[in-house]
Design a protein around this nucleic acid. Structure first.
Lengths: 336, 336
DNA sequence: TTGTAAGCGTTATCAC
DNA sequence: GTGATAACGCTTACAA
């Protein structure tokens, strides 16, 4: 089914069908109705490739996800779902590219094959080759997370430094003096992964300001890592009475380690952190945490990207999210 | 950058460039090399839209995922990742369509806009309107999960009936006589969701054959639902000594309820089920379970789909997975 | 071995 | 208010 067939059946020119559907020039009510009838009957929709070729835009966004080797966390998954959803709401399609570096074939296709009008990137490194590549290719993009040069680029991000800092202050207010930070994996932190280093910054700054003893621990993105990490903390640093975590995938393990050690939360140990609401509510007792607004972040990423696509000269915009800490039941006064 | 520019810079005709890149007709080594140099220098790749228009195929697969309202489970997420990965390996792109019913705009664009060469569908209902729509449109598709008429269609699926049956037999062999099935949510089961009804079948059949007392419980796809479901079982059906579950998202809650109730796994209560390996290993003790081979299933789905696209007349093929139960530590002899 | 040209289905310009 | 037609960038049948 193509526009020529619609035109033939409605007894008009192809251009008239095009205009009737786009509304870009007036069409008499009579012919518009006749065309619409045929269109509805045959369930016609313009061929995407032909339209993209002619218009020079694909009405498609690229979403670069970590390759399957690196398992996606619930938060990343939420971003994928929310980006797809937000794009669908404005009639944009989303093309998935599971790429790690900058020389991946599917990533290259997106760019030089002009498969998409713009790209959303997740799991950004402070120095990210994919960002360089997109800039060089002149492809509009928005990152979820920011690079080391955040002023020049378009992004949405969580303010990990301030969130972790707030967590520390909250624990300090409750009287805790000896606390731990459960960070992401050592590999990620070493690779210059933003959340890792910014959580570190926020933690050391706040710990120092409040005169606390703070220890930092890297931890893999899974429950077993969380369990062994916290088990280690409990045995080797018995003075520690509270922890703040940005590693949500480790939470089930954190919980298990505390239970095994017979620590009551929050009576004899407090836990606070940054996590998707679902993870926070799955914790027992429910986790006092800054709830990551992943749905909103995905939606804003799409919004920024469409804006940048519409005006390639526009000055860079970003959005830093610092959601409030939701008090649930996992943090209490320090035992004395 | 387009093929004309490459041709001009290499001093040949556009068709020669095309042939040099596709290899569809011999090109002298000398010119091939000259062209390749220019291509490499300018990082040229054929425009995807133009190529799709000319060839009548998009080299893109559609992947229909549940809309964000219904949160994706870890298993669904694994499917998404593995499909994207498998497609990328054969240089196909994946277009995401978050659609529930058959009249979603993004779903319709896939089909009548000819945005993709074929579609992969997940979360299939026994009677699924999306399947009907794809058949009517003549769009090749493969489902992850199967409909009520599995002979006519292409799919990959888990053999829930046989897996659950095996779990029951395993528990019976261990001496359990009073067991429970934790199914998916009541809504899903009522809506004719395959895994739900097939788990039911396998359970009742095996329970009957072994002369056991079996009770079935529906449970939402999250930890809190799992916790209250199992808590209810323990108080209201004290005779039950073991359960089999196909609801992996409920597992953390299942564990919590057992711990709260002071039941030792596997000493005083046994748990077996069907789950992604990651979920099974997160359980304490690790869960004796049939490990869902999501990576392989996604890859096979892509393989079947490409096959069907290549030969639209081919007779329907499918693949039913019945992975063995991996013995871990969560099931033991019935306490007497 | 290479070049010429038609045509894929659209949209937009120009003409009436 | 509507129709004819060129052009988007590519692949491929046909010519040389």
């Amino acid at each position: 089914m193509n526009i020529g067939e619609i035109a033939r059946r409605s007894g008009v020119a192809r251009s008239t069908v095009s205009y009737a559907l786009s509304g870009k020039r007036p069409v008499s009510e009579e012919t518009r109705r006749r065309i619409q009838e045929v269109v509805d009957e045959l369930d016609y929709r313009p061929n995407a490739a032909a339209r993209a070729l002619k218009e020079g835009r694909t009405r498609t966004l690229g979403l670069v996800i970590p390759p399957a080797g690196a398992r996606l966390t619930a938060m990343q998954l939420d971003f994928v779902a929310s980006v797809a959803e937000a794009a669908a709401r404005v009639d944009l399609d989303v093309l998935l590219s599971p790429s790690g570096g900058d020389s991946d074939r599917s990533f290259e296709r997106l760019i030089s094959g002009r498969r998409v009008d713009g790209v959303i990137l997740m799991e950004i490194r402070l120095a990210d080759p994919r960002v360089t590549r997109l800039e060089q290719a002149g492809m509009p993009f928005v990152t979820i997370g920011r690079t080391g040069e955040p002023d020049r680029t378009w992004w949405v991000d969580l303010d990990y430094a301030s969130l972790v800092s707030r967590c520390v202050h909250h624990l300090a207010d409750l009287g805790h003096t000896d606390i731990a930070l459960i960070n992401r994996s050592a590999e990620l932190v070493a690779a210059g992964y933003g959340p890792g280093s910014r959580a570190h910054e926020g933690f050391t700054e706040a710990v120092e300001r409040r005169g606390l003893a703070g220890s930092e621990f890297c931890c893999g993105d899974d429950a077993p890592s969380g369990e062994s990490c916290v088990a280690g903390i409990l045995t080797e640093h018995p003075a520690i009475t509270a922890l703040v975590t940005i590693n949500e995938a480790a939470l089930p393990g954190v919980q298990r380690a505390l239970e095994r050690a017979g620590r009551e939360v929050p009576a004899t140990f407090s836990v606070v952190g940054v996590a998707a609401r679902q993870w926070a509510e799955d914790f027992r007792p429910q986790l006092t945490a800054a709830d990551v607004p992943s749905l909103e972040m995905g939606a804003i990423a799409v919004e920024l990207l469409t804006e940048r696509i519409a005006d390639p000269e526009a000055v860079a915009r970003h959005r830093l999210f610092a959601p409030p800490i939701s008090l649930r039941g996992s943090a209490g006064p320090a035992a004395r």
